[in-house]
Design a protein around this nucleic acid. Structure first.
Lengths: 207, 207, 207, 207
DNA sequence: AGTTAAGCGAGACGGTACGTCTCGTCTTTTA
DNA sequence: TAAAAGACGAGACGTACCGTCTCGCTTAACT
């Protein structure tokens, strides 16, 4: 517990600047890719000084991750009011749409920056994937408890199967990643057992 | 057919330099990641001038892809003497070992560079993945013809299922990617049908 | 008359802080030159906030001038009890010693800052030189009145001749600036002849 | 002898860039003082990259000194065709005019930068003053040999007396620095009356 | 044998971004 | 209500790599 009530001394951090920076980072990344999202450009775009950026994030990678995280959280909420299986269905469809739009491009940029900087995707997993995965797995476990989801395999395995498959096809630009495929993927994953066949990328069109 | 016998005029290209550059690129990438593999460093390391590098490859991405391709071809030959199913088994195991060594690190570096430069993995797919995939799919189709491989699904789908799953777990550093897992993965993929259930990442250990 | 008795409202200005700042400025300047005497460093050294410094001095130049002035006044008092000629003799010797110590280094720093900021030494002259010069000239005039000083040339000219010559040799690091030289310089300047010719510093040994 | 015939390898240095940089440095210094003559501004003004500036000069001080030196050499040639005394007369008058124009401002800027950087004027003396002084002293010695210049004191002393006095009055903005004053100064210095001898005694310790 | 056309090393160069620094202002809380 | 604490925008610092551009030398094939 690092005393959260430590009555902040001095001028408080400007939250306006913080969001302006995150917005600019996301926007530049989405529009022009990593190349256009230099820290200089982000600072200029958001009318914030470079120093402030370096002070709060320390580099481009942490900044991009935050920018991505913020948007992903906004755009891909996991409903808590729906039945578990439906919640995942809805969320996976949203993810599909998001991947094919700006968020997808930004996600690849973040991943690239992470690999460039660290040599592995560790930080991306730690700051993003693991969080989402835990959240998603909780929903799935809930569905398993109330019987909506038939499969008894570990919730994480089911989560990986759904989102991992989608990500793989997205990353390498393989076709046949559409609404129907995702619906079948989720259904099959949850049903498991005999119906498991369609789970695997059918890919009849090949590429 | 661009006349291959167009009696080369002037001084011929130095093959020694070419391989020195590819070696240096691979080595620097493997040892210090993308950061250490600047074109300047590669040129210096290989005792070749920057001009020569730019002349023959035109940039870092094509160079890295070539360097990776060369090593991958050397280290991961697809046996033509074995029975198709065995050939894939052996190859997948080799791929597993390679991923966990230098080749894995270099592959991620190449991917990162590709995403950084182009925003997508297109060039990597085009120059590497599609070639390997076509080769692998041929072997698989051969196995399907002679009955060694039971599944009747498209060979590309089977290929993706095996190598895509491995890559996904590798990229995000998820555990439970070992010799046994790969063997089961290949077996299940080829068997298909009812036995397909274990095909999907079982992941009992979760993460 | 700015009512000195204006019942101080609120927290009164800390005189302690003021002297701490001047001391720190002088010290840092003497020890590490202008480079080490940033306002940040001075504020930190004197345990005073930057704001306070800016509030009372408005910038580095005025602060440095004050710091120099204070030390110079402390170290180079012009005796009022001695006979005029002796007073100048003593003072010039003190000045010589001071120039070769910390005060000399600080003086150059102040001059440099002044030139950097304004392009000329105007402020330095206005705040320091002109004051000293007026004071010194008064003493000299007194000596001229009571006959101790023979020269009838303007007191300012005599002052310039003594201190200007010393400063010139000091600034450009020319040698032969010692106790004997200064004594002779003052004597000759005060003796003077009818002709103004000797006004100009002679100097047989050159450098 | 550092082999001057070492057949230059690689692309030869662009002399155009070098002069463009020196010109820009001088101009910016003259127009806006030290503040406007940042290395960035100089590089931008001269359409040369910062790296090139750092490569050839290594910093602002050496660059400014070179820029000043070049202009001073161009503007203040010491005539070799005139009689020695006349040559100094003419040169001193040119120096007077130059001081009151751009060159004067630039000289102060160079001096300020030198003091700021090093704490003393050593580099300025070494690169500029000592060169000019040696040259001027040669002319004076020549005049002493052929009898045009009466004073038998060391040529350097006469040089210092003339240019040092001018510089001192210039630096501190004291008045009465005009054509007549300079003429009288040079005449008196060269004539060297008998009364001058006792004025400043001698300085036997030298350096 | 001499000419010609490329390959190649060395290295200068303009450009752009990096990450750090100090300045001078602004906005809070504390005394 | 002055001072401290510290965030902030501005912009220069000096460095690094990029990709392009001369140079002068080398290496063959074609006169």
């Amino acid at each position: 517990m690092t005393a959260p009530k430590a009555k902040a001394r001095g001028r408080p951090r400007s939250e306006t600047s913080a969001t302006a920076v995150l917005d600019a980072a996301y926007r530049l990344c989405a529009d022009g890719g990593l190349r256009d999202a230099s820290i200089q450009a982000i600072a200029a775009e958001s009318r914030v000084s470079k120093m402030t950026v370096y002070k709060w994030w320390g580099g481009r990678l942490p900044l991009l991750i935050d920018a991505y995280l913020r948007q992903a959280t906004l755009m891909l909420p996991i409903s808590e009011s729906l039945a578990p299986a439906d919640a995942i269905h809805v969320h996976a469809q949203q993810y599909l749409v998001a991947l094919q739009g700006e968020l997808g491009r930004v996600q690849l940029a973040v991943l690239a920056e992470c690999l460039s900087e660290n040599g592995d995707a560790g930080l991306f997993v730690e700051r993003y994937l693991s969080v989402r995965r835990t959240l998603g797995a909780q929903i799935i476990r809930q569905g398993q408890r109330d019987g909506t989801i038939g499969s008894v395999r570990p919730a994480e395995a089911l989560y990986d199967q759904i989102y991992g498959t989608m990500f793989y096809r997205f990353l390498f630009g393989f076709q046949s990643l559409d609404e129907a495929f995702v619906r079948a993927l989720v259904d099959a994953t949850f049903a498991d057992a005999a119906a498991a066949i369609p789970v695997i990328p059918t890919d009849r069109t090949a590429r």
